[in-house]
């Protein structure tokens, strides 16, 4: 999809923000004991305040109440939804996304606030508004947009009894984008940006080292005054104070000085299992790098390794060290 097409889609869908999904929906049944019983049986909630009139009367509630989590249940559509659901504004919005290839839908989370207890005989009416559509996001499931609806629940007197925010992701499933990637050159524009590793910020003192890595070389800074090697690079030699330096290319021979396997948190763009080591190079300096080509349980301090500077993702060249 081109940038223009994205703009068109976004203009079209943003017009939906603020619109009511449909006329307010009054629950098909008032709050009633039978539905409360079905719900508590299914959820295994044995709290007597939901079914035992005597207990409930003596409790702080003063009588039977509905489980608060049933709030949304009272105004749900029921089985008619499985047939031909009414084309409300929310479904219309989803169809706009579908037409642009964002056919995936995933409920991501809800946040519900409860203002008062509901009791048998109460009537629940839901008023739902499209509240927010996010920027275009790259997610693990594919590129997409988060849509938030806000539902206000009112009772028979019109008073607010609760509020729910419901968030869904409308996305282009990854399989489809992967197909597009391999099909035609024209479809290359479709390719979503896959997460890459965090790039090393480059400045006066370190850019040259990363530029050499980009060229496939692992360099070690060398003082022109006293010949000592240093890593990470620094602008002055701590031994002789010379600011003149050049660099040698490393043999990439080394051994594991220490290591760790990184379990949590997992960061997008990094391969797991992920092993990180302090590598002692034959030249005498050390550096942090990833270990590759071995299982975590095979690694030990003192293990001989051989490095290889290689491409690890679309943006990143790095040294990897393999068992020698």
């Amino acid at each position: 999809m081109t940038a223009d097409e994205n703009r068109d889609l976004e203009a079209e869908v943003r017009a939906y923000v603020g619109r009511e999904v449909s006329a307010p929906k009054r629950g098909k049944d008032d709050v009633n004991l039978a539905m409360i019983r079905h719900w508590t049986e299914v959820t295994g909630d044995e709290n007597p305040v939901y079914h035992d009139p005597e207990f409930a009367a003596k409790s702080s509630k003063g009588g039977i109440i509905a489980p608060p989590t049933m709030l949304q249940i009272w105004s749900m559509e029921g089985y008619s939804m499985c047939q031909e659901p009414e084309l409300d504004v929310q479904r219309e919005l989803h169809k706009v996304f579908d037409a642009h290839g964002y056919v995936g839908v995933l409920g991501t989370n809800t946040v519900t606030e409860f203002y008062r207890d509901l009791r048998p005989g109460d009537q629940v009416t839901a008023h739902t508004v499209i509240d927010n559509i996010s920027e275009r996001k790259t997610t693990g499931r594919g590129v997409g947009y988060f849509i938030e609806t806000v539902t206000k629940f009112t009772d028979q007197s019109g008073a607010d009894i609760g509020r729910q925010v419901f968030r869904v992701l409308k996305f282009k499933p990854n399989a489809e984008t992967a197909e597009a990637k391999t099909s035609t050159a024209g479809a290359a524009a479709e390719k979503p940006a896959l997460p890459t590793r965090i790039q090393a910020p480059r400045g006066h003192d370190n850019a040259w080292w990363w530029e050499a890595i980009d060229q496939g070389k692992l360099m070690i800074q060398r003082c022109k005054g006293c010949g000592s090697l240093r890593h990470p690079p620094r602008p002055m030699c701590g031994k002789c104070n010379s600011t003149a330096w050049d660099a040698i290319e490393s043999s990439l021979d080394g051994e594991v000085y220490s290591f760790t396997e990184l379990h949590y948190p997992k960061f997008p763009g990094y391969p797991y299992p992920l092993l990180c080591a302090v590598v002692q190079l034959r030249e005498g300096t050390r550096l942090i790098a990833n270990l590759a080509g071995c299982a975590p349980e095979q690694v030990f301090i003192g293990m001989k390794v051989k490095g290889k500077v290689e491409r690890v993702d679309d943006k990143t060249m790095l040294p990897n060290f393999y068992p020698a």
């Binding site: 290591f259 960061f267 942090i288 990833n290």
Partner: peptide, 24 residues
């Protein structure tokens, strides 16, 4: 710049830095 030597390799968190000393 300091963290440039660690970020691309995924050594990003305090736990990961301490783990390296601990293992040794």
């Amino acid at each position: 710049i300091h963290y440039s030597w660690y970020m691309p390799f995924g050594l990003l968190t305090p736990a990961s830095w301490v783990a390296m000393f601990t293992q040794r």
